[in-house]
Design a protein around this nucleic acid. Sequence first.
DNA 1: TATGAATGAGTTTTCATTCAT
DNA 2: GATGAATGAAAACTCATTCAT
Lengths: 202, 202, 202, 202
Amino acid sequence: MGKAESNKQLKRESLLNTAYKLFTTKGIHDTSISDIVKEAGVAKGTFYLYFKDKYDINNKLVYHRSTKLFENAVDKLMASDKANAPVKDKLIFIIDCVIDALADNKSLLMFISKNLGLGFYRYAMETAHNEDDSIIRKIDEEVLNEIDSSVTNPELMMYMIIELTGSSIFSSILYEKPVSIEELKPHLYTTILNIVDQFTIK
Amino acid sequence: MGKAESNKQLKRESLLNTAYKLFTTKGIHDTSISDIVKEAGVAKGTFYLYFKDKYDINNKLVYHRSTKLFENAVDKLMASDKANAPVKDKLIFIIDCVIDALADNKSLLMFISKNLGLGFYRYAMETAHNEDDSIIRKIDEEVLNEIDSSVTNPELMMYMIIELTGSSIFSSILYEKPVSIEELKPHLYTTILNIVDQFTIK
Amino acid sequence: MGKAESNKQLKRESLLNTAYKLFTTKGIHDTSISDIVKEAGVAKGTFYLYFKDKYDINNKLVYHRSTKLFENAVDKLMASDKANAPVKDKLIFIIDCVIDALADNKSLLMFISKNLGLGFYRYAMETAHNEDDSIIRKIDEEVLNEIDSSVTNPELMMYMIIELTGSSIFSSILYEKPVSIEELKPHLYTTILNIVDQFTIK
Amino acid sequence: MGKAESNKQLKRESLLNTAYKLFTTKGIHDTSISDIVKEAGVAKGTFYLYFKDKYDINNKLVYHRSTKLFENAVDKLMASDKANAPVKDKLIFIIDCVIDALADNKSLLMFISKNLGLGFYRYAMETAHNEDDSIIRKIDEEVLNEIDSSVTNPELMMYMIIELTGSSIFSSILYEKPVSIEELKPHLYTTILNIVDQFTIK
DNA sequence: TATGAATGAGTTTTCATTCAT
DNA sequence: GATGAATGAAAACTCATTCAT
């Protein structure tokens, strides 16, 4: 990668990071492209070399940041002694990792929650179809492919688990309402395991 | 109510209805105050007599429309033969009513989903504190006040039920993904009843 | 004066006082008629029963408040042992009274200074021609009519004295720059007396 | 200076000149930013590239035009045979130049008078502190630095002279009331010299 | 007299986008 | 590729004034 090439990437990165910072602080509505380029230290026109508009950079951010979240969780799983544990355990492990990461990074939680209003699942499915390197596909293939054939409707099961998790952690992490995330966790995991059972033919 | 007074309410109503129509069709971002007043047939300044800005009228709409949704559900419950049924049954009845209403009114579902990104529950609790006539308070008092004392943490239980329901129906109703709402319902209600059990001391 | 009549005057007074308060605090430019009537507790339309517009009420205020200033000074003079002193002494007495009153009421000083930007004198002369009860005419007749016939150009003399006084006290009272008003006074009065001498044929 | 740079200055100048023209003809209150840009031949947004609002461009104009006034006076003094005359003579020379310039340019007089309502002196002192190239500082250093040590309070002396001059010439130039500027001059200069004497220890 | 909701022309202000350098 | 001044359509918002009650 030549000097020019790396400089090019630097500008792009700078724009992405600045946009993320401003979107999470002031909100996308109150952030203008002017604000972004001023803070990023690049020229107005440069923005358009990399992104179509404000919403384009926002989408790229959502994809980028949420993918990383799951990638890290999978990496941690693989590095752990749970790498070969039963699917149920791996599922809880990954969910736990993601929750911890979001509890540690509330602005990311805020950012994702504002953008995935219609649910993690739908977004995940959409990107799974559009992007070759979809993290969802990777999770599916590498972690959950061994879901027991006794599960009647694995996709629906995953849907309910993801939606329940995704929607219930926000208020808990951000406002500790109605309970803190640490208090929520055991109940949530119990429910998740119940859902798995519910979809399992005995 | 004098002639002037009723005319005043008419203008306000007209603005609310027009805004709702435009927000759900074109989106709030692409709807200008000019658009609203033009379609509502009132002068620009009149808008500012009733609402601070676009976001103010939007919030008032969210409150108004979502309250109505639950009010109708409670009314239906009271008029039904389930008025004196066990709490579990009343809960499922209300949820079923709300889901049916939203399935019948996708633009309302869309509208609410865009605006309650952080979850029904948090919004419900906030308005419960701010508004005297909060529907949530009413449901609490009139329908659920008899929750069995054997439930360990009724608030947390309701939280999980509401979040699971609120987030899982969207994709199902709007895109029939991963399954249609009619297919989802039995699984959802099973999970809800499981959650109730989970919080019940045996 | 009937009840209705006094109520009428009360509204007018309330509008005048509120306008003065707002003009001196926020400036005339940032005060709207809406602001005035809201704070005064009267209806919008009522404003137009008494005043033509914002500038009309402002002018009436300037006239009213500055006239009172000089009236009080003349009253004090008449009540003092200087009532029959030489003109020079009476002149200094009146000027001293006015300065003290303004030093005691900085918002009034601010208000007058903003509105009499083109000088006390011109304004005084204009109102002297327009208003039957002009305070300037009264001062002229009751206090200064005995100006010695040895003064070559009494009008010009008064002009210079008024302008010098009017412009030099502002900064002194409001910012104590370049010196406090108490420090300024002796120098100012010396200069005034010098001006009188300058116009007196010896 | 590149082509772009000079074009940039041209736009700024054009806006300043147009604003001055409109402010002096119609008044600042009746001049809209739309008026300015239309007449200046630039786009609406361009205005905001150079000025914050109407009042910002007005302030910059006051500073610019009043500074020029004194600069020209000092230049004329330096080019004259009075360059090395006694301070008294130089003082009268500069004042005379400024008065003549304002008598020749009544719209400038009007403009300055409306904006320096609280007095030349205060404004001059403020800008002297804020601006490195303050004309007041220059006059002080180049012309008046040799004020005789026998003057007890040079700053106060200058204050009184400036305020007297500044306030008394307006009505005289604009309305020839109470006397024309040519009639006023000898009396004014006599008073000024008297003030200098008053502050000089004999 | 007094009211205050309604008006809508007029103003300020923003900002995504372009394009000559 | 990179720049950033310029654009101008379009948005938000204001407010003096009116008039039916």
